[in-house]
């Protein structure tokens, strides 16, 4: 009976935990390095637009491009743009 109403089975929990764990292991990226990447991205993007550098979020995701033994993880950055009305056109030229 319990199977019907049960939350995730421990088998599924184990799979989910492993998937996340292995991404971190395979990428082998320290928190310090993530911070450095973040500040560098902020530096580059702020050349072109006004962004909220303090609230940038970057993370490594499982979903990516298939290659070899496993799919390559991808790095995604969430960068809040402060001034949308600013003269973005300036940089297009």
């Amino acid at each position: 009976m319990r199977h019907f109403f049960q939350r995730k089975s421990s088998r599924q929990v184990a799979k989910d935990r492993l998937k996340i764990l292995l991404i971190a292991d395979r990428v082998n990226c320290s928190p310090e390095m993530m911070e450095l990447i973040k500040t560098d991205i902020a530096k580059v993007i702020s050349k072109y637009m006004k962004i909220d550098a303090d609230n940038i979020e970057i993370q490594i995701n499982a979903k990516g491009f298939k290659s070899g033994r496993y799919s390559k993880p991808s790095l995604s950055a969430n960068i809040p743009i402060e001034d949308v009305t600013g003269d973005l056109n300036l940089n297009r030229q």
Partner: peptide, 19 residues
């Protein structure tokens, strides 16, 4: 245990390790 949902199956392990 696999049938009860309390252990990863061989296929689960192979999917994760991909060898």
């Amino acid at each position: 245990m696999v049938r009860r949902g309390d252990m990863m199956s061989a296929q689960d392990v192979v999917d994760i390790l991909a060898v």
